[in-house]
Amino acid sequence: MLEAIDLHKTFNNGTINEKKALNGLSLKMNEGDFVTVIGGNGAGKSTLLNALSGVWTVDAGNIIIDGLDVTYMPEHKRAKFLGRVFQDPKMGTAGNMGIDENLALAARRGKFRGLSRGISHKEREEYREMLKILDLGLEDRITAKVGLLSGGQRQAITLLMATLKRPKLLLLDEHTAALDPKTASKVLATTNKIVNEHNLTTLMITHNMKDAIVTGNRLIMMNSGQIVLDISGEEKKKLTVDDLLHKFALVSGVEFNNDRALLS
């Protein structure tokens, strides 16, 4: 489903702040794979997601989604294949538009936006049903401005928007990191539910090692813009956090340096 081949990206090239964020990274994901990504601060996790979603083009390498080479495809065109949820709950929704309007925007991802109605009555009823699944009581406030909702609610809506048109690849960028533990686990549970229901190919960055171990069928660990560990199947099921830290030190030769990950 996804093939990333030898990706390179350097920020601030030629300056004292030069940073090789992606350093020959390659990753192949099969259809239905649910891959969790962990790594230290500045390992290139978010850079990888931004590269895949086309926020900027990579310096070298190729990105292939569902057989199509999208390396030079602009962000808004690539969006057709991708569902994205960001770390900041404010990032994924239009705050001064209604819940229904936000969902309607997502329903038209990859379609031509002309002078037909922006949202129909029938659609609104469909969205009401979808919101019921979230179990947050949002179905009764469907025209409320998203900006009035809590971070967890916004994130749940973003998740719904990202998967409304089934994406070829779902990208989750620490989407539970900004939420309190209880809400975070609820959003994660919803994520699992939606992903399993539609068998979506998913790439999820997380800072929570336990989540990374129990979620999905494959786990990759990044360091200095490369994948240093790739564990799947039975081996992944038997993993513990200590195992992971140990393995990381072994392959990378440095201690794992993500403060948030260690604290949680």
């Binding site: 969006a79 379609k111 936006r113």
Partner: peptide, 18 residues
């Protein structure tokens, strides 16, 4: 609607293919 979204949140708009 996509114009309003562009003004409200350009990042989200691009992510939704606008």
């Amino acid at each position: 609607c996509s114009l309003r979204a562009t003004g409200s949140n350009p990042n989200m708009s691009r992510a939704q293919g606008i």
